[in-house]
């Protein structure tokens, strides 16, 4: 028989709820999501939990495990020493729909506010040319699986509830991705300051720490965006030169052209 372990799982709808305790047999290699599935199949058929890939690729299964924001499909049971009960609850920053499922629609609304890429014309032979090293840094952002764990921990959203003033780390790096895209022609800097709230972040780096894709959100996205905002409003001439001659003529940003 596989050893048993106690779990305290949040159950409830909306603002109403409580922790329920379950004892579950844990087999070798199991992750927290497996435990939840076992509870679902054997005990509580209607336990609400989101998941899709079970391999850390889709970002559906975000929750807080022993107080830490995690992907439940990538959290192995053998990482918990001792035999204290393991506490599983929904992300705190978003309203609970039911059990471990939260209402994350706000995030989708933020993405919709961000103007997409508008690329410059192709080379005469129909290709776009970009050096790998000029896209390495935006590919880092594009690893994002939209688990919204960074949004969950960011204190501006979590504790101060300033969802109307700040799009949060996930969308700051989406903006950085577009701003640093070698083909892009849109100017988002004024909006980054005014509408998306770059000034709200005070660089605590909590977001980077929880990101399951290890995206250095603060260092590689938010700080460079803040610098761009500052240099724009400080030195508009520099900005115009940059747009006309491309970034290479000014400060190196690694772009190929």
């Amino acid at each position: 028989m596989a050893p048993k372990r106690k779990f305290r799982v949040w159950r409830g709808q909306g603002t109403e709820g409580r922790f329920e305790e379950y004892e579950v047999a844990v087999d070798p290699g199991m992750v927290v999501l497996d435990v939840l599935h076992r509870i679902q199949a054997e005990r509580v058929n209607d336990l609400a939990v989101r998941w899709n890939c079970k391999a850390g690729k889709c970002g559906s299964c975000a929750m807080e495990i022993n107080g830490k924001p995690k992907l439940s499909c990538m959290t192995r049971m053998d990482t918990f020493k001792g035999n204290e009960p393991i506490t599983i609850q929904p992300m705190k920053t978003f309203d609970v729909i039911k059990d471990l499922v939260t209402d994350v629609r706000w995030n989708y609304e933020q993405n919709k506010r961000i103007p997409n890429l508008k690329p410059k014309p192709r080379d005469p032979d129909g290709h776009y040319r970009m050096a790998q090293k000029s896209i390495d840094r935006i590919q880092e952002f594009r690893k994002c699986i939209e688990c919204f764990l960074c949004q969950d921990v960011c204190h501006v959203l979590r504790d101060q509830d300033k969802k109307d003033k700040f799009v949060g780390p996930r969308f700051m790096h989406r903006l950085a991705n577009l701003e640093m895209h070698p083909l892009d022609t849109v100017d988002r800097i004024p909006a980054i300051r005014r509408d998306f709230g770059s000034g709200m972040c005070n660089i605590t780096k909590c977001c980077s720490e929880v990101c399951p894709e290890s995206i250095a959100i603060t260092d590689n996205a938010i700080i460079p965006l803040k610098e761009r905002v500052v240099s724009r409003y400080y030195d508009p001439v520099l900005w115009i030169l940059r747009k006309i001659f491309g970034p290479k003529k000014t400060k190196s940003c690694g772009c190929s052209k």
Binding site: Q40, N45, D99
Partner: peptide, 9 residues
């Protein structure tokens, strides 16, 4: 079992 709200079963 349960209600129709977010019910994986």
């Amino acid at each position: 079992h349960g209600t129709s709200q977010f019910n994986p079963g």
